[in-house]
């Protein structure tokens, strides 16, 4: 297979685009996709101060690398979840990546706030992935807000987004469908959230990391067994194999034709947010979910 652009030997075949690229042209294609998405949905521009959520996996580190290459003002934030060797390894990948390239980054440990994930898992009855996600979103946003960042970027890719869209559609969850997309505007203490990799698949971010020499964690979270999104990704992957290009069509079609209807429907029934009585951040109830979880962990720990 030859590279579509320069006719050299291809290294990456992309059935969804009926094409292939050599290493150099693939890196250019990857950056172009990020710029195209950022421009199309007005995710950010070069005046923005962007906080990049770094997990230590391929997507977040690829995001940090490509935004750096495109000369955006980026700073990384890694949240250490306190899950033994798994978290130590993740932290190690982030630290090595940023230090090697001289990139600014911070590490925030949930254990410092009484929310080490093993303790949370022992204290709550809900699925841990859901609670962990809420805690991470809370601290990424809080850090961004309190440190003057104008955008919070995450490494969600096209596979993540189509799996989530599929799950939301299965439940016809109008509120989630109305708010799903590559950009969630900032409001009050909520910093604008952006997903610059939404046009790129996991295969593409993995190939990018290999070709750009980004060392990343490959092990799954020890608590993620049976996560429903993994099953949804496999289903979507099967459909993509039969109809290459289906995922991006599904997602872009939703953004163009589906989301506006759900956004309109949601405006009518929006629940008012109040300030959490404990932390002051927006909440659906008197005390926010993270502060309630912290209380449950403290109670469980005291009872040991």
């Amino acid at each position: 297979m030859k590279c579509k652009r320069c006719k050299a030997l291809a290294a990456v075949a992309l059935p969804s685009h009926h094409t292939g690229f050599c290493p150099e042209c693939f890196l250019k294609y990857f950056a172009d996709q990020v710029e195209r998405g950022a421009h199309k949905h007005k995710l950010f521009d070069h005046s923005d101060k962007i906080l990049v959520a770094l997990s230590g996996g391929k997507d977040s580190l690829a995001l940090m690398q490509v935004l750096t290459d495109l000369e955006y003002d980026v700073t990384g934030l890694h949240i250490d979840l306190g899950i033994g060797e798994s978290s130590e390894a993740a932290r190690g990948f982030v630290t090595a990546f940023c230090e090697k390239r001289g990139l600014p980054f911070h590490v925030l440990s949930t254990a410092h706030y009484g929310l080490a994930i093993p303790d949370v898992k022992a204290a709550v009855r809900r699925p841990i992935c859901s609670v962990c996600g809420k805690i991470k979103r809370y601290y990424f946003n809080k850090f961004a807000h309190e440190n003057g960042f104008t955008a919070l970027a995450t490494g969600h890719n096209l596979d993540d987004e189509t799996a989530r869209l599929f799950a939301n559609t299965l439940r016809w969850d109008a509120r989630y469908l109305g708010s799903q997309g590559p950009m969630l505007p900032g409001e009050g203490k909520f910093v604008r959230k952006v997903k610059p990799l939404y046009r790129l698949t996991e295969f593409e971010t993995a190939a990018y990391c290999f070709l750009r020499k980004v060392e990343h964690g490959k092990a799954a979270c020890p608590y993620s067994g049976g996560a429903t999104f993994t099953g949804h990704k496999r289903l979507m992957g099967g459909l993509e194999r039969v109809s290459p290009g289906m995922k991006i069509q599904f997602y872009e079609g939703f953004l163009r034709d589906g989301r506006p209807a759900f956004q309109a429907a949601c405006k009518e029934g929006t629940d008012a947010l109040v300030e959490c009585a404990k932390c002051g951040y927006p909440s659906m109830s008197e005390t926010c979910g993270v502060c309630r979880t912290r209380g449950m962990v403290a109670e469980k720990t005291a009872g040991r």
């Binding site: 996991e202 490959k218 996560a227």
Partner: peptide
């Protein structure tokens, strides 16, 4: 062979 699907 490096499988690419992320699992949390």
């Amino acid at each position: 062979v490096r499988t690419v699907i992320s699992r949390g």
